[in-house]
Computed example of a mutant assay.
Amino acid sequence: MFSKAGNPWDRALVQRIENPNKPDLWNTTSREEIRNRIVGLSNYGIDTIDYSNFVSKTSNWNERRVQALRDLLDIKTIEDEYWMVTKVSGYLTKEDSVIVKATPLFLLSADTTATNPKL
């Protein structure tokens, strides 16, 4: 059941962003820092497994893949909101602690896509 237990892993989530002009918007953070901003994608009819697989397994974010991401999220229907596509990575340390980091990839609105300039 847990054949990959202890191995590093990647998943993805969406954060709702209140202030898209925050100076630390693109910083990698801990899961505790974003906990209250996570969007429940299933509430929007989006399959969370498909979304997470799409984001975590894409390494070449060309224009076509970014548009597919926007289509998957049906972002054009999200009015007056900003959604942050976020890759979440975790791993087990030698001391048996779990480290989880959330890295912003894209900031999306109905008509705009911004890419993390730090990547």
Results as ranks from 00 to 15, higher is better:
85 V>I: 10
115 T>W: 02
73 L>D: 08
82 Y>G: 00
88 V>S: 05
75 I>C: 00
116 N>E: 04
96 D>M: 14
114 A>G: 00
71 D>C: 09
91 Y>M: 12
83 W>N: 06
91 Y>R: 12
94 K>E: 15
84 M>G: 10
110 A>T: 09
93 T>H: 02
111 D>Q: 06
68 A>T: 15
103 T>V: 12
111 D>M: 07
87 K>M: 09
80 D>H: 04
111 D>F: 14
79 E>P: 00
103 T>S: 11
103 T>M: 14
90 G>K: 02
87 K>D: 02
101 K>F: 01
110 A>R: 04
93 T>G: 15
98 V>R: 14
69 L>A: 04
102 A>P: 15
106 F>R: 05
115 T>D: 03
85 V>A: 06
99 I>G: 00
114 A>V: 11
84 M>E: 09
102 A>Q: 13
105 L>G: 13
69 L>M: 09
111 D>I: 02
116 N>A: 06
116 N>K: 03
98 V>T: 15
105 L>E: 08
104 P>A: 05
93 T>C: 07
105 L>P: 07
69 L>Q: 04
104 P>T: 03
77 T>H: 13
113 T>Q: 00
104 P>V: 01
86 T>E: 11
98 V>D: 11
112 T>V: 14
74 D>Q: 04
73 L>W: 09
103 T>N: 12
95 E>K: 11
87 K>I: 07
110 A>F: 15
70 R>P: 08
